[in-house]
Design a protein around this nucleic acid. Structure first.
Length: 841
DNA sequence: CTAGGGTTAG
């Protein structure tokens, strides 16, 4: 017997609810048995919401559960109204109860639903729809096996599932990592017996793409195309575009480019949005050169659409993000010369580039030109310029521009005002005038405005003023704008003060403040404080951004303090925080670098134990020690080697004088279709030189050029090191290859060896003048050269210079033995060994 | 919030 309490029925407009309220059935006082329930449900045939609500009431009652027939009745009602989502939702509830909780099995329920319909056609539809909903429900509660099994059952019974169900099932297989299952599924979908119509496949591909399975979509495209199942060109084109864009969204850029290539081969023109997706994908990945190379390739192929302003602004952004502002501007000029129309987005990037180069006037000039070309500047264009003027200390121009906005009937918005107010403050100009102006114009300053002004004041060094403003605001909002103060100190490079201000606080700040301070501390190598910051965040109950843990450990590793890194790792363990792949890899790399091989191995085992799968990068780091063992392990783990990995392994074998294995590895790499790149060739060239086979080395150098592998500065360093007679100067200049510290050091070393110390010193000077910072090794080279040849005074001067810069030469075997001291003394002054020792160390 | 890998100099 059911005792049904009042129906809380609110959101229906259907007449049954009124009937109910008016007392045709007074459920309050009615005690219903199963037959009663079914009878009531029968009357609710036209009101699925009411039926659902009624069922819920019975479920909630708890005295006795609804019967299988009651569920079946409700399901039939909901189904007949095509409320597929409601149906799935209902099933989710049913599944979650479990067999015991509900007193019948799901199969019982399905049978009960199906049996009630006598009409064969209707029964078929009903069963199809219900099973589809159930599959989706299983997938939603992550009971993938059940979802998949049921689906195959449906297929066997020839019931028809909708597209959504197909998508859900692939997703289930995909998430289980069952690639065979996916394959079988797709095969089945394409087989002639179960072939679907074109619209189905289109919807299916789209469903895959929006559910982050574009790769599956891609795999499906070829057979669909070959079997001509997407009817016409336009269907295929649409499907291809969706797949490429989907792959870009999922950051699978290689696959996206490959799919793009396929579609072009089929003679389908990708549209601008497709190109744009690829380029933006690369840009988001910070692969700027890939983005630009892609554009160049397409331009070379004379692809249409690539000159659209949307693409152009991406290109410009790439240059700017690489810090190459002049190149961005060159690009703008090139576009304009080609009469390519730019839009206000492109211009905006150009303004930004000019400003970053300090060329504010030209930015404003370009802005005028843009206006003359009929492009109406928007508020973002103005914001860029106004912010830029402030950034370069040109406050009057910033104010002029905001006035111009007003006079042109483009009222500045809160963002522009904020940028201006903050900008004025950081230039020690009066920002309060702007706050007043804002009030007058009816734009109310917000806490962002105040924070920006406070931050600006701190940057300008007006600490007291900033504190006073903060105080006055604190009355309204406790804690006020310390965020601005801390960020201001960070920006001003006054990290100690930033840290002091932060550590006193007993309330949390917005996360971006922590992040700014944390990043600044790490960059300044004040890692102890960075760690304290993380610990303070924990104390305040603020969850640090996940990447902060890895960054902190990375920072410890960079200064070679493995002990502190390990200690922090233990703290993380105590908090049950599992370090990620990056963190483990950087730790292992550092241990290998410091020759703590046991520790490296322990970390490697620990990561595997804790469920972090090593990838090819991890194996590359480890391969430097025992390539043989690592290679086996890697292959057992199913990790595929790449060029980086092979280069390391080959080089390691050569270093260990194991030519046989080195050659075997080269062969394996070639067989695997992995093409050697500059680094691989350079390593090989170096190895041959070391084996005293200069001819083979040089042959390889020519081979790499023939194969269009462009040598880089490292390659030339190797050549110079082993064969100083070769004059590669011109070749390097033609290729635009700049010398770096390594290259200069080799030059210096060579000159020292031949006794041309003055020439060596000149080169050292030239290096500094060309903006290449000498490091410990280069200082040691020049100092040793001076000493060996008797230029003691120069040696001392250089030594002092090095120490003043806080540079220390890294330890080497040679430094331990102080080989230099054994060389003969000088002609200029007689110096004792101790003095030389003093001078050097 | 852009964190991890290969080749070179002592």
């Amino acid at each position: 017997m059911y005792a049904v309490p009042a129906l809380a029925y609110t959101n229906s407009t259907i007449s049954h609810s009124d009937q109910l309220k008016e007392g045709n059935f007074d459920v309050n006082s009615l005690e219903l048995n199963e037959v009663g329930v079914l009878r009531v449900l029968t009357t609710m045939r036209d009101d699925p919401y009411l039926a659902l609500s009624f069922l819920k009431r019975i479920e909630g009652n708890g005295a006795s559960l609804p019967s299988v027939s009651a569920y079946a009745a409700v399901i039939r009602i909901v189904c007949s109204w095509s409320l597929d989502e409601k149906l799935s939702h209902l099933f989710v509830g049913i599944i979650r109860k479990g067999d015991e909780g509900r007193g019948f099995s799901v199969v019982d329920l399905l049978n009960a639903v199906g049996e009630a319909e006598e009409d064969e056609k209707l029964s078929f539809l009903l069963r199809s729809r219900v099973s589809s909903a159930l599959v989706k429900a299983y997938a939603e509660v992550e009971m993938f096996d059940e979802a998949i099994d049921l689906f195959w059952g449906i297929e066997q019974l020839r019931w028809e599932a909708d597209v959504g169900t197909y998508v859900v099932v692939v997703q289930a297989l995909y998430r289980k990592g069952d690639s065979e299952g996916v394959e079988k599924f797709l095969g089945n979908l394409l087989s002639s017996e179960t072939r679907k119509h074109c619209g189905f496949y289109m919807d299916f591909v789209e469903g895959l793409c929006v559910n982050e399975m574009s790769l599956v979509g891609y795999i499906l495209l070829r057979p669909l195309r070959d079997a001509n199942m997407l009817v016409d060109e336009s269907g295929l084109a649409t499907a291809y575009r969706k797949v490429v864009k989907g792959l870009c969204n999922e950051m699978k850029l290689e696959e996206a480019e490959s799919a793009l290539h396929d579609m072009e081969e089929c003679g389908i023109d990708p549209d601008v949005s497709v190109y744009s997706a690829v380029i933006e994908g690369h840009r988001k990945n910070m692969s700027f050169s890939k983005a630009l190379r892609f554009v160049n390739d397409k331009v070379a192929q004379q692809r249409k659409g690539i000159e659209s302003p949307v693409i152009l602004s991406s290109i410009l952004q790439c240059w700017c993000q690489m810090g190459k502002f002049s190149e961005a501007l060159d690009q703008v000029i090139a576009f304009r010369n080609l009469n390519i129309t730019l839009d206000r987005f492109c211009y905006n990037v150009a303004f930004d580039a000019l400003i970053k180069l300090g060329r504010v006037d030209e930015a404003i000039e370009l802005f005028r030109e843009m206006t003359c070309e009929g492009i109406d500047p928007d508020v973002v264009n103005y914001t860029t310029l106004i912010g830029g003027c402030c950034q370069q200390g040109r406050c009057e121009q910033a104010i002029d521009l905001i006035m111009e906005m007003e006079s042109k009937g483009k009222p500045p918005d809160i963002v522009v005002y904020n940028v201006l107010a903050g900008g004025l403050a950081r230039n020690a100009e009066n920002a309060y005038g702007i706050l007043k102006l804002m009030e007058d114009r009816g734009v109310k300053p917000t806490s962002v405005t105040h924070s920006m002004v406070i931050q600006g004041l701190i940057v300008a060094g007006k600490i007291e003023e900033a504190e006073a403003l903060n105080q006055s605001l604190e009355e309204h909002k406790p804690g006020g704008h310390v965020a601005g103060i801390v960020k201001g100190y960070c920006e001003a490079g006054r990290l100690d003060e930033a840290f002091e201000r932060f550590i006193r606080l007993d309330f949390p700040l917005p996360k971006n403040v922590y992040f700014t301070l944390f990043t600044s501390l790490c960059a300044a190598k004040d890692i102890d404080k960075a760690q304290k910051l993380v610990e303070r965040m924990w104390e305040l109950g603020v969850e640090p951004v996940k990447s902060m843990y890895g960054k902190l450990i990375g920072a410890w590793c960079r200064v070679s303090d493995v002990r502190k890194a390990i200690r922090f790792l233990k703290v993380l363990k105590g908090r049950e925080i599992v370090p990620d792949l990056f963190t483990y890899t950087i730790m292992i790399k550092t241990c290998c670098r410091l020759n703590k091989l046991k520790l490296a191995d322990a970390l490697f085992r620990d990561m595997k134990k804790r469920g972090i799968k090593p990838d090819v990068v991890t194996y590359t780091v480890l391969a430097k020690n025992n390539p043989e063992e690592i290679d086996t392990d890697m292959k057992e783990y199913g990790v595929k080697p790449d060029v980086f990995y092979y280069t390391t392994v080959i080089n390691t074998y050569y270093r260990l004088n194991n030519e046989k294995r080195a050659h075997a590895t080269i062969q394996e790499m070639t067989r695997g279709g992995i093409v050697p790149d500059v680094a691989t060739y350079t390593a090989l060239i170096n190895s041959y030189y070391r084996l005293n086979n200069g001819k083979k080395a040089y042959d390889l150098f020519r081979e790499m050029k023939r194969r269009r592998v462009c040598p880089d500065v490292v390659t030339y360093t190797v050549l110079l090191n082993h064969d100083p007679k070769l004059d590669m100067k011109r070749e390097m200049r033609d290729l635009g290859i700049k010398r770096d510290v390594h290259y200069y050091t080799v030059m210096i070393h060579h000159k020292c060896k031949t006794g041309e110390v003055e020439e060596a010193e000149r080169i050292f000077q030239e290096m500094k003048e060309s903006g290449v910072e000498p490091d410990g090794v280069s200082y040691r080279a020049i100092i040793a050269g001076c000493l060996r040849n008797g230029y003691v005074r120069d040696a001392k001067r250089l030594y002092q210079e090095m120490r003043e810069k806080g540079i220390e030469p890294p330890p080497t075997e040679a430094s331990k033995n102080v080989v230099l001291l054994q060389t003969k003394s000088n002609t200029e002054t007689r110096v004792s060994r101790t003095k030389i020792q003093e001078a050097l160390y």
